[in-house]
Amino acid sequence: MSFWILTNAVFRREFAGYFATPVAYVFIVIFLLSMGAFTFYFGQFFQSGRAELDVFFGFHPWLYLFLIPAISMRLWAEEQKSGTIELLMTLPVPVTAAVTGKFLAAWVFSGIALLLTFPMWATVNFLGSPDNGVILAGYFGSWLMAGGYLAIGSCISAMTNNQVIAFVVSVVVCFMFTISGHNIVLDFFQAWAPVFIVNAISSFSFLTHFNAIMDGVIDLRDLVFFGSLIALSLFINSVVIDLKRAD
């Protein structure tokens, strides 16, 4: 059977799983509440008097840092804990199809949560005349970045059968990816590392790539960055699952 039929079967099961339990609803409510709280209280959205969503998008990396690992922690850890991994891995499903299906379900789910922030978009359009192209780019960049966090989280979830460990480690790793372009990090390396290493570390920064897209410029390099990060993480994810057979 084709790869995509099997990926789709896993995708549908996973995706339905979010809505079969309160997980989806709790997550979406918390996601929307925290997005709103950060934008309006800390971001001083109204006081800024500008019809744009920069403040709103600016908080996304930091909220994702905690909210996305909350989705990704269960992807594989739960299957390994409950033993359903044995069922899944003895069905004629390639590991890569299972990994892709699970990832896509989580990614689409986070996309839905993101789309439900549309009242923000409606608000700025009601109050002023924002550049909707820039806003669209912001949403797209935010979703891409969520995919990056999710892929890293999924990979880490595969390495443990404990969801708490998966969550904590994912937050730490995602944090490092988020701030790797920040001066605090770069100063530490600049003192002794060669320039190309400092540049390499800086280029892994989610913030740098996301900010570039948020400005309304969808550069191929930023797409390639998130795309290859997702692909690489999912590849490692598959290898980790495969290695457990021989463990």
Binding site: M1, I5, L6, A9, V10, R12, R13, A16, G17, A20, T21, S82, G83, T84, E86, L87, T90, L91, P92, V93
Partner: peptide, 28 residues
């Protein structure tokens, strides 16, 4: 192969019908 693993693991949040439909889809 049809396989019943030890302890008969199944996805707890699905109903038997949903679960069997998933298996059917995977089995082609």
């Amino acid at each position: 192969i049809g396989y019943l693993p030890e302890g008969a693991p199944a996805y707890p949040d699905m109903t038997p019908v949903q679960f069997l439909s998933f298996i059917a889809r995977v089995r082609g």
